[in-house]
Write a protein that binds this DNA or RNA. Structure first.
Length: 685
RNA sequence: GCCGACGUAGCUCAGGGGUAGAGCAGCUGAUUCGUAAUCAGCUGGUCGGCGGUUCAAAUCCGCCCGUCGGCUCCA
């Protein structure tokens, strides 16, 4: 199972390479201060493949500046100044950096314990630093400044905006060169350029940023993925041998009240698109701003006040609304009219109205869970019905900030292979294991490398009690300890607002991390929506809910697939699987006849047919081969006079070149069926 | 959202105050060819949008939109 084990950060930190990069950061800072006096320093750590340094300066570093800085670094390196470590008291350090005008360094000193503070000097340059470094700056030769970007002091967007310069540094010239070549190669696998070159998808500017459109070839791949996932869910062969999933399909918009009940309106607000009809808008039926009643203010009061699902809030008109949006006494489960009417009605001004003020009467769904809980609640459920596994290819919409969109990997509209599993408290450990195995099976089908992370509660942004969270986190941790002990990461505070999760993380060609599969354990939404089942004791109980997506989203997974395979998809996904190349027009009829035969071949029980085309352009064979290879068509069939006469074919494979052992359509069909059936995932050597 | 860069034909890009360029793609014609680009002709652009400066703006300035690299956020 190619789960990438937790990297031993310690190994890297102890390496000479790490010191080279750390020292390079110092050298760069020295060069920057030499060239641009008055530039103040922030942090400058080594990172994967290099280092950066953050500078506090009104100057905007340009590309030309980078060359000048690099030049200066080389000049300084020639002096081979010794790196000298110098312990310093907190008071002296504070004075030193204050005198130097290094405001941020001084601020950082404040956070350090006295007695453990050191400076590092090289030549005239001094920096607050724990080290270690290389012996002298003369050892720093193989570096290159890569790019400049913005950054915030301490990563806080409310603090100083800094200028960050990224560099790379290596121990040898060859390693540097190899790294730069690797970056160039990786750029060729960028799914955004391949998406264009292979006509897979488009982001029409008129439609809006982050809204992906699938072109025919992309749509074929999307549908193949959907067919596969449908099959895996319906035949129950992975993870849950006892019982299959039940498919659902739910609307894309839900009443604002539903999002109030689920807590999204509080905790997921920044990412939601709200909608309304023009009729409602023009007739003033939207929630209006009212002065907050009973001390119900904005923001902070909300955060704390409404993080708790339990309590009820009195309305001004005397009725009671639970924070689940249901009028007390009404246990029908229908979200009450509170959200909509409270704002428009006379005299209301309580929590719900305030929260809905001026926003649409409907919300475009950013998640599928509320819809799924609503369907779980249709009819009554007994313990015999559990686990209930409800799944949907659910399309969701999230308002992502403009700067974070990234091709197919971060979009505003995407479809999740989403499911919500309703289980008893006894069932959830085994259930999580089943899902975990399902995720591994899917990722392993493509041979992805991935790592696994447990993401725990963020107290600032979550609903539910401490006990319930502790229980949920413990449940997930136990599964990880069983399935991949010592190999998983723990990321504190990165949970969903309703529960902790296990995420599967895949890297793109340039090494950026993206969350794919996710398994989330949730004791809170069943409570909020009052989902229940009848136990063997005849009493009502609360089910536990698992949110999970295996691919994550089709869009992101598609993007990652493109990068993983450099656009040369496994045969079963390839939009054009076979292209027939007649050498001259005389073989065109034969080529078309072959295409006809192939197009009717079933390659699996799912009625799939081979996707085949004929290149009928009046080009020479060399050009046709080139076109076929450029479009990464897995198999090219060449037919000339000899083949037409003997009824044979000559086959060229994208990965393996000419296949001399295949001379007939039957032989090729056999190979294709096998390759498709086993979902063979070849990579270019 | 923030910092910076960029936006010229379907694609990749050159040009940089004085009549808009190339290659590929597309179309037409010729060629009928054996493993990564056959030849010729033609078509194609309000130079992302709006405003400003100027006798004159693709070019300079401002705002907006979009993209790219990061930051912050985040599945």
């Amino acid at each position: 199972m190619p789960i990438i084990a937790k990297k031993h950060a310690e190994d890297y930190k102890d390496s000479r390479l790490y010191r080279v990069r750390h020292s390079s950061a110092h050298l760069m800072a020295e060069a920057v201060q030499a060239l641009f006096p008055g530039t103040r320093l922030a942090f400058g750590p080594p990172i994967e493949d290099g280092f950066y340094y953050d500078f506090d300066t009104p100057r905007k570093f340009s590309e030309e500046d980078l060359s000048a800085i690099e030049e200066k670094m080389r000049e300084l390196s020639k002096k081979a100044a010794q790196f000298v470590c110098e312990p310093i008291s907190k008071a002296d350090a504070l004075k030193l950096f204050s005198d130097l005008g290094e405001k941020l360094k001084a601020e950082h000193v404040e956070t350090l314990p006295d007695g453990a503070i050191t400076l590092y000097r090289d030549g005239d340059f001094v920096d607050l630093c724990a080290g270690p470094h290389v012996d002298n700056t003369g050892e720093l030769k193989h570096f290159k400044l890569m790019h400049v970007s913005g950054a915030y002091w301490r990563g806080d967007e409310k603090r100083e905006q800094l200028q960050r310069i990224y560099g790379t540094a290596w121990e040898s010239k060859d390693e540097l060169k190899a790294y730069l070549t690797r970056i160039e190669e990786a750029k060729k696998r960028d799914h955004r350029s391949l998406g264009k070159e292979l006509s897979l998808f488009e982001f029409p500017e008129l439609a809006g940023p982050g809204l992906p459109f699938y072109l025919p070839k992309g749509a074929i791949i999307l549908q193949e993925l959907k067919n596969w996932m449908w099959q895996l869910h319906m035949d129950g062969s992975y993870g849950h041998p006892d019982k299959v999933y039940d498919p659902l399909s739910t609307p894309h918009i839900l009443k604002t009240d539903a999002w109030h009940t689920s807590g999204h309106l509080k905790n997921y607000r920044d990412n939601m698109f709200m909608v309304y009809s023009l009729d409602e808008f023009e007739s003033g039926m939207l929630g209006h701003h009212k002065p907050a009643a009973q001390g119900h203010g904005h923001s902070h009061a909300h955060h704390t006040g409404c993080a708790d699902p339990g309590p009820v809030a009195p309305l001004a008109d005397g009725s009671i609304i639970s924070s689940a949006g249901v009028t007390a006494g009404d246990s029908s489960g229908e979200a009450g009219p509170a959200g909509r009417n409270a704002g428009a009605g006379a005299g209301n001004g309580a929590a719900v109205a305030d929260e809905n003020e001026g926003i649409g009467n409907y919300g475009l769904k950013p998640m599928n869970c509320p819809g799924h809980v609503m369907l779980y609640k249709v009819g009554t459920k007994s313990y015999r019905d559990l686990p209930a596994r409800l799944f949907e290819f659910g399309t969701v919409y999230r308002y992502e900030r403009a700067g974070v969109l990234h091709g197919m990997l971060r979009v505003r509209s995407f479809t999740q292979d989403d499911a919500h599993l309703f289980v008893t408290p006894e069932q959830y450990p085994a259930e999580i294991e089943g899902v975990f195995d399902f995720c591994c099976h899917v990722l392993d089908t493509f041979g992805f490398d991935y790592h696994v992370a447990l993401k725990t509660r963020n107290p600032e942004k979550s609903i539910g009690s401490d006990e319930v969270w502790a229980m949920a986190e413990d449940g997930l941790r136990k599964v990880l300890e069983k399935r991949c002990p010592g190999k998983y990461y723990v990321e504190e505070g990165d949970a969903a607002f309703y529960g902790p999760k296990i995420d599967f993380i895949i890297k793109d060609s340039l090494g950026r991390s993206w969350q794919g599969s996710t398994i989330q354990l949730d004791f809170n939404l069943p409570e909020r929506f009052e989902a229940e089942y009848t136990g063997s004791d005849g009493d009502k109980h609360r089910p536990v809910m698992l949110h999970r997506a295996i691919l994550g989203s089709f869009e992101r997974f598609f993007g990652l697939l493109i990068e993983e395979f450099g656009g040369a998809f496994p045969l079963w996904l390839a939009p054009e699987q076979v292209r027939i190349l007649p050498i001259t027009d005389l073989q065109l009829p034969y080529a078309q006849q072959l295409a006809q035969q192939m197009a009717h071949m079933r390659y699996n029980t799912n009625n799939g047919v081979v996707r085949v085309c004929v290149d009928d352009s009046s080009e020479k064979l060399g050009k046709k081969i080139r076109e076929g290879k450029t479009q990464k068509v897995p198999y090219l069939i060449v037919v000339g006079a000899a083949e037409a006469e003997q009824g044979t074919i000559t086959v060229e494979s994208y990965h393996e070149g000419k296949l001399s052992d295949i001379t007939t359509l039957d032989q090729l069909a056999h190979r294709l069926r096998d390759e498709i059936h086993h979902k063979v995932a070849r990579r270019k050597a």
